[in-house]
């Protein structure tokens, strides 16, 4: 097995692991006992998705995925911060 084949396989395995991670986070988003568990899991879901897109970038050799990952990381932050603020006060904009 050549080193290049190992790279192909490990990227594929990594993508599978990340999809599993997103599934675990999705479980907490859907069935999390309380609202804060759902928001926390949504944040983890975003991060796993961002890492998945980065591995897509390595798989295709295309740096365009980098921009998608950057946008996801920024939107994920804004979304989670807004949701946490909402949980604290019951309103997002004061």
């Amino acid at each position: 097995m050549s080193a290049q084949a190992i790279l192909v396989w490990s990227v594929a395995i990594a993508e599978f692991l990340l999809v599993l991670a997103m599934a675990c986070a999705a479980y907490r988003v859907l069935w999390g006992p309380r609202a804060q568990d759902r928001v926390l899991a949504l944040d983890a879901f975003y991060v796993s998705g961002m890492i998945l897109i980065l591995t897509f970038g390595i798989e295709t050799g295309d740096t365009v995925y980098f921009e998608a990952a950057l946008v996801i990381s920024l939107l994920g932050f804004v979304g989670t911060a807004a949701l946490a603020k909402f949980l604290m006060r019951g309103e997002t904009i004061e």
Binding site: I6, L7, S10, A14, L17, L18, A21, A25
Partner: peptide
């Protein structure tokens, strides 16, 4: 592509994905 680059990339990608998975398993 040099062999050491391929191997090191593989290890890093697997390590990163594995740690992320362990984190979300901890969430469960």
């Amino acid at each position: 592509l040099p062999d050491w680059v391929a191997i090191l990339t593989s290890v890093l990608v697997l390590l990163g994905a594995g740690l992320t998975l362990i984190g979300t398993v901890g969430l469960l």
